[in-house]
Amino acid sequence: MSVNHTLAQYSNWAYTSAVAIYVLSMVFYLAEQAFGRRRATAAAPARQLVAAGAGGPAESTATPPAPPVSRPGERSMPERLGRMGIALTVLGVLVHLMSIVLRGLSVHRWPLGNMYEFMSFVCLIAMGAWLIMLRRFEIRRIGAFVLVPVVLLMFLGGTVLYTQAEPVVPALQSYWLVIHVTVVSTASGILLVPGVASLMYLLRNAHDRNPARFARLGPKLPGVDTLDRLAYRMTIFGFPLFTFGVICGAIWAESAWGRYWGWDPKETTAFVAWVVYAGYLHARATAGWRGGRAAVINVIGFAVMIFNLFFVNLVITGLHSYAGVG
């Protein structure tokens, strides 16, 4: 099967556009951060309750408590910037999705055959997951921080890891590619958001204990409870999915490499990540470990996942390093 270069070209353009849109939306979020007044402390929980109680599209229906500067019923400039940021993120996700679909169409296969495609998919899932969570949690103000790793990953994916559209080697010609890699990258994308949330939790927590620390940023972050719940909710969704992905990988490894588990660097790091996330769930159920310590563990899990995405494929030689680079 030959590669459709026109579609591949369109896919690349869509990818670049998506990165540009993400960067732009990050600018809008940051503008909201920078110019937004510190939220009145009383207003925040009230708003949160409304959003949580409505469950659905709270974002559009709930009337936000009017910030001091604006007339009633009218949104302040920073808030409008933040909302524009969300709109841009949605646009970015759509263009990003288009890039992946076009890539798949151009090579007539599932578009998860190399590191570039894998990274792109992970980022799409992360952004999609974040948008969904945005409907349930008042977390717009960490938008820029979620976008930082995503934009970085996509930039590296588009430059260092970029691979021409081409068919995959025989070892990857299996329906397990679709199952294993899709599940694992979905889980990785989902787990990326709680990693950022836990990091923000630690900042906010430090600020709450000592207002002098992160004095400018701290008050603008969502409350510790929101961040903790967000991290936990997404982790308990991402963790079983990740487990499923690893099991699928083991099943595939059994038929491709002759053993279901061989302590290949990628497998080992996946094991480390799994143990760390298991530790997070246990910590969250252990008195004295909830909150800060659990958040630290979650951040470590996030770091291991990123390490697994990158380092293991790029630097260490193993069975997973055929991914089209180096």
């Binding site: 298991a278 252990t286 470990w289």
Partner: peptide, 24 residues
């Protein structure tokens, strides 16, 4: 309860840490 869970957590952490050189 505390010791059991704390021990298990520390052991989990050691397990993860111990596996790292296996990848590196």
């Amino acid at each position: 309860g505390l010791t059991a869970m704390r021990t298990a957590l520390i052991l989990l952490f050691l397990l993860a840490l111990g596996a790292v050189p296996g990848a590196m």
